[in-house]
Simulated assay, not measured.
Amino acid sequence: MDYAFGPEDQAFREEARGWLAGHLASDPAPTPRAWERELGTGGWIGLAWDTTHGTYGNRTTGLTGQVVWAEEYARAGAPARLGHMGENLLAPTLLAHGTPAQRGRFLPAIARGEAIWCQGYSEPDAGSDLAALRTSAVLTGTGGTYRITGQKTWTSHAHEADWCFLLARTTEGARRHHGLSLLLVPMDQPGRIEFRPIRDMSGAADFNEVFFDGAEARAEDLVGGEGNGWRVAMDLLGRERGLSTLAQQIGFATELEGLVRLALETGVAAEPVTRDRIVRHWAQLQAMRWNALRTLGSPDGPGAPCVAKLLWGRWHQELGELAMEIRGPAATLGPGAWDADRPYELDALQRLFLFSRADTIYGGSDEIQRTVIAERVLGLPKEPRP
C-alpha cells in the first residue's frame, strides 16, 4: 500500500495552507456563518462531491487532495464547521439519490456556504435504535405537502439551521425500517417547529430537542422515493466517517501533544506508568491513521466505519482520563459559576474529559457498532427480538 503524496498534492497542500493562514490571520474569530460563506467563496466546499452532475461552482479534487485539505484544515485550528451536515452528508446523498431538480435547487447554496442544514434522526426513544422512530409525515389531500408531527433530539445546530433532512414514517401502521421516508424540511416555520437547547456537561448547548407540530415539507422535497427512507438514511450515515476521521485524528494528535508538554513541564512524564500510557496512546493513534487511510477509497462494507468508531471512541475517552491524571488535583476545580448562561469556564483538558464521555454513545453507541460488525460482517445470527 502506497500512502505517499505526489507533487500535485504538495502544491495543493501549500495552496490550502496559505489560504487558511491568510484568512484566519485577517479574521481569527469569524462568525460560523461568515466563515462558511468565506469557504464557499474560496471554492473549498464540495471537494469530494461526485462531478457526474456538475461541480456547482466549486473545485473538486481526488482522494489524496481531500486528505490534504482535511489535514491542513485541522492543523490550522480552523473553526468547527457549521456546514458539515450539508456538505458532507446531505450533498453526497442528493448526488446519489436526489432528482435533478433537487440537486439544482439545494447544492449551489451549500457550495456557496449560504445554506446551513441539520439532521433530524434521533428521537427520545429511538437513538441508537433509529428504526423505532415515531415522527410521522402525512401527505395532505392535495398531495403537494407533507405535514410532520413528532420530536427529534440531539439535533446539532438545529437553532442555527435553515433546513433539516428528516427521517419520518410516511406509511401508517408500518413498523421498524419499513414505511420511512427522508424529507427536506425548511426550519423557518414559527409555531410549527420549536427548539429546546440541551446543555451538555461542558456547558455548551449545540444540541437541541426539536418539536414538529404540523410542520410542512413539499412532496417534491422527498429524497429517494416514498418508503425508501431507510435505504437512503443508511447510505447517508455511512458518509459520517471517512475523510472526517483523518481530520479528527489531527485534532487528537494536537490534544496528545499538549498532554506530553504538560507531563514534561510537571515532571509527571518521569513516572514509568504514565510514560507507558502516553506512548501507547501515540502508537494507537498511528495505527488508527493507517487504518483510516487503508479503508479510504475501498470501503469494506459497513465493517470499516464501525471498527473505526469503536477504536477512536474508547481511545479518546481514555485520553480524557489520562489528561485528568496528568493535570492533577487542579483538574477537579470547577468554574466559579456553574449556572452561568454561557459555556462553563473550563480549561481545555477539563473540556476534553467531559465531552469525551459521550464518544462511545453518539454517532452510534459501541453496542450498536459491535452488533453491526457481528451481523453484517461476521455473519453471526441475529438475536431474536422479544
Results as ranks from 00 to 15, higher is better:
residue 170 T to D: 14
residue 171 T to F: 10
residue 171 T to N: 01
residue 172 E to R: 14
residue 173 G to K: 08
residue 173 G to Q: 08
residue 174 A to H: 11
residue 174 A to L: 07
residue 174 A to T: 05
residue 175 R to M: 08
residue 177 H to S: 13
residue 179 G to H: 09
residue 180 L to F: 09
residue 180 L to D: 08
residue 181 S to R: 01
residue 182 L to E: 05
residue 183 L to A: 08
residue 186 P to R: 11
residue 186 P to T: 09
residue 186 P to K: 10
residue 191 G to H: 07
residue 191 G to E: 06
residue 191 G to A: 06
residue 192 R to V: 00
residue 193 I to W: 07
residue 193 I to R: 07
residue 195 F to Y: 15
residue 196 R to W: 03
residue 196 R to M: 07
residue 196 R to V: 10
residue 197 P to I: 08
residue 199 R to W: 12
residue 200 D to H: 11
residue 200 D to T: 12
residue 201 M to Q: 12
residue 201 M to R: 12
residue 202 S to V: 12
residue 203 G to W: 06
residue 204 A to E: 14
residue 205 A to Y: 03
residue 205 A to Q: 14
residue 206 D to T: 11
residue 208 N to V: 00
residue 210 V to M: 11
residue 210 V to T: 14
residue 210 V to P: 09
residue 216 E to K: 09
residue 216 E to F: 03
residue 217 A to Y: 01
residue 217 A to H: 05
residue 222 L to T: 13
residue 223 V to I: 14
residue 224 G to A: 05
residue 225 G to L: 07
residue 226 E to W: 10
residue 227 G to D: 12
residue 228 N to I: 04
residue 228 N to S: 13
residue 229 G to C: 08
residue 231 R to M: 12
residue 231 R to Y: 05
residue 232 V to K: 04
residue 234 M to T: 15
residue 236 L to K: 01
residue 240 E to P: 00
residue 241 R to P: 00
residue 242 G to T: 01
residue 243 L to I: 13
residue 245 T to M: 03
residue 245 T to I: 00
residue 246 L to I: 15
residue 248 Q to S: 13
residue 250 I to R: 11
residue 251 G to S: 08
residue 252 F to D: 13
